[in-house]
């Protein structure tokens, strides 16, 4: 065949996943709905600021388009948070429910190939959806204010968030027999990552600030540990990509305080990537181990001998 590269890179599981995914009309519909949703956000933003703000006298200038970029990027992040669990938390358990998993597991495909191929296939589809929203972003580029580098970083960040939610989705899909349970648990963990970390940050920030006020100190302590909590939140990490000074502000206790000389111990997005990379690796490792029955401990039990091959029917 002329497609040598595909034989090298696309294993049978991936090939099947791609085929099934792209054949289902549901997939096309989800691309459509997703782009419509993000387009609606963009239109609503333009309408609100251009026609409602300041009695309709507002100009759409580069700073406005930058704000719009932020709004779009956050909307996209929320959409991803909703989409990723739905697309990944069923990949293993639905095969179990449709009773195709046992036959897949008796083939020569390794557990890692099966799990990773399913992850890659879902990620590819999500990437397709996210890339399909680029035309919406073109409105931003029409007015300037955003560098292509920022756009690329934000999209790479999305890819990472999808990888994170996707790995968790596949983990729960492997651990739980039923898809619906896997999806709910994945959304639950997603909620912790997206919402609870943010709330915890605000909560502890409040306490630390209050203690500081009570103590009556005149110089704020440089760099509070509370900032690390926001680094676990995708929203915080995303803002730190937009505004490199944001991390510094988060770690210093009082916004606008004497923070000129202080430096952020770590950029929030970098912390986010480092911490959750570990989560991703652990999630995938467990999923790969648990998709097939876990071998009992070898202690006190010797491996049986491999038979001597005697060919001769």
């Amino acid at each position: 065949m002329n497609m040598n590269w595909s034989r090298k890179w696309i294993n049978p599981v991936l090939d099947k996943e791609f085929r099934l995914r792209m054949r289902s009309p549901k997939s096309m519909l989800s691309v459509l709905l997703y782009v419509l949703a993000l387009g609606a956000v963009a239109m609503a933003f333009i309408y609100m600021f251009l026609y409602l703000g300041r009695g309709g006298q507002q100009r759409f200038d580069p700073s406005m388009s930058r704000t719009m970029f932020y709004v779009l990027s956050f909307a996209q992040l929320v959409l991803i948070a909703f989409m990723a669990p739905a697309l990944t938390a069923g990949v293993i358990s639905s095969e179990r429910e449709k009773q195709t998993l046992s036959m897949l597991l008796t083939t020569q495909q390794s557990s890692a190939t099966i799990v990773l191929s399913k992850l890659v296939s879902s990620l590819s589809f999500m990437t397709l959806i996210v890339l399909a929203t680029l035309p919406v972003y073109s409105i931003v580029f029409l007015y300037g204010g955003i560098s292509p580098k920022q756009l690329v970083s934000v999209f790479l960040f999305y890819l990472f968030v999808m990888l994170l939610l996707g790995s968790l989705g596949i983990l729960f899909s492997t651990l739980f027999k039923r898809t619906i349970v896997a999806i709910i648990v994945t959304y639950g963990v997603g909620l912790i990552i997206f919402l609870v970390t943010g709330l915890l940050f605000l909560f502890f920030m409040g306490i630390v600030q209050r203690n500081y006020m009570m103590s009556g100190a005149t110089t704020p302590p440089v760099n509070s540990w509370v900032g690390y909590i926001l680094g676990l939140n995708p929203g915080g990490a995303l803002i730190s990509i937009f505004e490199p000074t944001f991390s510094k502000e988060v770690f210093s206790l009082m916004s606008g305080g004497s923070t000129i000389n202080s430096k952020a111990p770590i950029q929030l997005w970098l912390e986010f990537v480092l911490v959750y990379s570990v989560v991703i690796v652990i999630a995938l490792w467990i999923a790969i181990r648990r998709i097939r029955p876990v071998k009992r401990g070898r202690l006190g039990r010797q491996k049986t001998k491999k038979p001597v091959e005697t060919l001769g029917e």
Partner: peptide, 28 residues
Amino acid sequence: GYEVTDYPKEVRKRIGYMPDFFGVYDQL
């Protein structure tokens, strides 16, 4: 000759398994 828990890959090569209940991939 291959023990199923020690050499699952070798065993899988040698068996064709049809479960009592099975599904198919509809879109293929």
